[in-house]
Design a binder for these strands. Structure first.
Lengths: 210, 210, 210, 210
DNA sequence: CATGAATGAGATTTCATTCAT
DNA sequence: GATGAATGAAATCTCATTCAT
């Protein structure tokens, strides 16, 4: 006598999440400014008024979306990196593999996309994202690269800049696909990108060392 | 050559351009949706009515900005690439060097930034950008990589994916700096990025080939 | 006589009254239009739904407040006046003394205050007030003054206008204190006002008759 | 060549005043909260948007009304009182005569009426009114009464309380007429009120001194 | 009786666009 | 050409009222 009655009970607890789901979908499709609260409500299957019952403003929806998405991300993924002391190449391979898998899921991709396009109007979003995600992942990566260089496992490269080389190709792939609709013939091709990226990242494009 | 006449002449002719400059500045600062035509007019030092004399709508300003910026870009840069048959590494070095220099200029960076954040609301912008820039540069790059592989100058890599590795780290660098305010201690550090990027791109991070 | 039962009993019976008390407090503090039914409910310690169980609408609360306050007022006070045939000055003194004592109690003052500020939006309130209070007190007072003039106890004054002189200074005192926060140094100073008012009302400000 | 062209010229300068006139009329009729900005605009013969061109919010209209009304009032009327050193009875007679004349004009009466009914929601209005009008008039009156008492022209009365006796009957008359629709048979009867009030104020209601 | 989640009509406010001058 | 007063459609947000539980 729990599951059954739930159907009849008001779904008060689930509602804010449902509204955020709907808002995310609508915001990503139309952009925050062009999205109407009415549309969000309709997409969530509720009335406009209900949206305002849980969120004090349209902006609060945006904030809510990002906060909710950020909560679990950060520590979870970083734990591994920070205390990893094996071959950095393995760690990077694993990190990028996980990242690729995550970003293949449109639902997971939606939040970063939204942050990207609203960053100009709402710099706090960027700050939040930076604080919760980037400022944790980036130093961990840099440290790992630095250790690899010290170990002699990696060539003497600039750890701070190397992070751009690790993450950039993935970004470019996503951007080309999602923003400019430039996709390989075989679809999203995440595995192909990953294989090529890791190959070039570790061993370079050149046939011979200079 | 009286200053007066020159000013007057140039003004009359250059007005639409000045309006576009103002619009670009305002749009980049506040985002297209949040920018008011009034602000654009004020920034251009003209009246609101005059803006509508030159451009039929607010959207037309956005279009105008992108069109104007795109016109010279494409062919200019690509000419070299398409018919280049020397060492692809030299070509890539040159391309990225030019690109870095361009993007160090905030004025030049503004348009891609604007396109990026308005792409969701105005897919035509993305299409234009793709048609005029990406669809010209990308195949040229791919072809060059393919030739390098065929030549034996490059390792047997996937040309289509390699493009992501060439362009991605630069994108990541710009994104971190411009969107998330993550900058190396020594400022924009474009040269440092370029040096690191080319080094890793060509020779990889690994100490030893597998 | 257990406290518990008493409480429960009284509660069930007294609920509408408690709601009206809460409504009065909230309406006086924020004004009828700005007051939210939710606040009234919270102030009464009940749910919003319950308020609507007792009163069909927000307006009905206002009406209820005024009706409840008016019921006992009128006849009670007037009885004496109408059939009084002693010195009118004594009657006026007594009336004003009682009135002053009543209006010193913020709870008693609340209703007239509310009526006063909502009279524009709800002329029926004014009509009710007039019917139940003013139209009973005023003629009684006028009659008494007329009798006093006829008796020779009062100078030949205009009874209809004299009513304004009797009641006005009290109104002015309340208005200055409650609306404009203009208070003598010694607080509400009702006794001082009453003393001064009666002195001037009966004997005038002038040293000598003309 | 001034008056003629004015018709065709936009009435930009007169507009804010016209809007305030309309707002005052609508606010007094319906009350601030119940009045819709649309109605104000219609009453002013302009569009809703124009109202917001001159006033940033509905509340600003209210403020604007009171500020405009207050500007000329204060000093104008007080000058006379403060430096008057003749018979205080003459001064009071003059003051009340002027006041009565002013308040007979519905347009002049409108602002105090509005302030009265919105005082609860907007205490700043009361503060403004107090600062600009009451705090100037009241001390002047008190001083004059005190001088009269010192002179022997007035009986030994309490100057602070006497102010209530001077102003109150007028207030009561207006309140009865405007709020409760209680009017003598001969209409507004301002002169009758004034005559009766001054008679009682100076010489009292009593036939004989005690 | 009692609750409070849910609704939706309606209000305020914004701003792209027009057009008389 | 140039202005900026004026418009009104459309968006956000509020809150009295309802009703399933």
């Amino acid at each position: 006598m729990g599951e059954d009655t739930k159907k009849f009970r008001r779904r008060a607890e689930a509602r804010p999440d449902e509204v955020l789901d709907a808002a995310l979908a609508v915001f990503v499709e139309k952009g925050f400014a062009a999205a109407k609260v009415d549309e969000v409500a309709r997409a969530a299957g509720v009335s406009k008024g209900l949206v305002y019952l849980y969120f004090p403003s349209k902006e609060a929806l945006l904030e809510g979306i990002v906060k909710r998405a950020l909560a679990p991300v950060a520590d979870h993924a970083v734990e591994g990196l920070a205390h990893f002391d094996g071959d950095p190449r393995e760690a990077i391979t694993m990190l990028l593999t996980i990242l690729c898998r995550q970003l293949s899921d449109p639902a997971k991709l939606a939040v970063p996309k939204l942050v990207l396009s609203e960053v100009v109007r709402f710099p706090e979003l960027a700050a939040m994202y930076r604080r919760e995600v980037l400022d944790k992942v980036r130093p961990a990566l840099e440290g790992m690269v630095a250790r690899g260089v010290a170990n002699g496992q990696l060539r003497p490269i600039d750890p701070e800049m190397a992070v751009r080389s690790i993450i950039g190709p993935l970004m470019a792939h996503i951007a080309m696909s999602e923003l400019f609709d430039i996709r390989p013939d075989d679809g999203l091709a995440m595995e192909r990108l990953l294989k090529s990226h890791l190959d070039i990242l570790f061993y370079g494009m050149s046939e011979a060392r200079p």
